[in-house]
Design a binder for these strands. Structure first.
Lengths: 215, 215
DNA sequence: TTAGGTATTATTGTATACACGGATGCAGAG
DNA sequence: CTCTGCATCCGTGTATACAATAATACCTAA
């Protein structure tokens, strides 16, 4: 499962910067230079540049004559990403049900179990990480590398965007309950039901992030 | 419209390699080294590496202990990408109709005009380029950067994949006719019809690429 | 005082040098 | 003949030096 090579500085810088951009540490419109990032991160320009090229590819940053401008994602981006997820997450769910192995099912089940555990602890950080895992397990098991590569970045950005949305315990609770419902439908190999539950889950997540109201 | 900066070697290498991978010049499973690419392209490792990082991000290549392995896209990838397009190209079409300006419409119209022109000439290269433009104009005008960023790479890869599919004059003719039909529905601001025409277009493209038969 | 031009600076683009790690091949011992 | 260990080589990861370009600030002249 693990890559043969140890994580390079390039990769670390990429993930570090991506997290900082998505979490809002760098504000939209802010301009940073390569050298500034080098001194902040304590590495040379080579890994910084390679990370920036990847962030550029994801349109999280933009080149300007004065340096690199942070773009991040906007509320509209969030809605657009959710709209796309509403259309194709269905494919992932159906693929997962069709390809499901006992190991896949157990892994997904475990993720939800942990979520319920950390919910009782009010451990928001673990909850958010597990939320990511839940969906990524489905992506990884859907049988389509393309679909995985399309959905995973969207969900990653969405998740960071609503960073604060899951802080409220009630919302986290509903989210976990929805995961449980999806899992049950998947376990029953009822693809139609699982898809419908997933659709509701995404729509609720949009509501949670936008107006903070529960259905 | 043009970027403020001239195209860098990094970008050129990236596009060059991407084209060569998608067109099949590098076969799937083939292993290349950075130095080999450097001497082939006549540049140093820096731009080559930056290009490779981006190709890696798109899962067109893979790192191995012996060098960089070319992955490219498989027939299944092609189907998966088409399946995704079937679901979200609709969003782009609706967005384009909703945001359409006279300039947008003209640009799209011109693309189809040119296609009909080059069709009479049997100029396959121009036809393929214009096919790409047609869809990218829609992506660019759909009002969603996220949607554009999601669809454009898919279409780019799909287009290169069926590289040879448009060689046959009859198929090219049908494709252009379908573009004309989509354009007419868009011009009439009939989003539902445009979406339906687009759906047919994508499904026909799948058939054309896979079994080479026309509907 | 203002406008214009030049010099300086700041930042990126590219090449290259160095270091590290794994794979490979050869040699020697069993 | 085979297996193991060591040395060498090959390839990548990282740092840094150098070049080019564009912005900025300053100085001078009208």
């Amino acid at each position: 499962m693990m890559d043969y090579k140890t994580v390079s500085l390039s990769d670390q810088v990429f993930e570090h910067l991506e997290t900082d951009i998505l979490s809002g540490k760098y504000r939209r419109g802010e301009i940073v230079t390569e050298l500034q990032l080098c001194s902040e991160l304590g590495v040379s320009r080579t890994p910084v540049r390679e990370a920036l090229r990847r962030l550029f590819q994801e349109h999280l940053i933009e080149d300007t004559p004065k340096g690199t401008m942070v773009l991040g994602i906007t509320p509209k981006d969030y809605l657009d990403m959710s709209e796309i997820r509403l259309r194709i997450e269905e494919l992932a769910v159906r693929g997962f049900v069709a390809n499901m192995t006992e190991d896949n099912r157990k892994e997904l089940n475990e993720a939800v179990d942990f979520q319920e555990f950390y919910l009782t602890r009010g451990d928001v950080d673990h909850l958010r990480a597990l939320d990511g895992q839940f969906h990524e397990i489905i992506y990884a098991g859907c049988g389509s590398r393309v679909l995985q590569d399309t959905l995973a970045p969207l969900h990653k950005k969405i998740q960071q965007y609503r960073h604060n949305a899951l802080q409220a315990p009630l919302r986290a609770k509903n989210s976990v309950q929805e995961h449980r419902a999806i899992l049950e439908a998947i376990t029953a190999r009822d693809a139609d039901l699982a898809v419908e539950k997933m659709r509701q889950h995404i729509e609720n997540a949009i509501d949670r992030a936008l107006n903070g109201q529960e259905k």
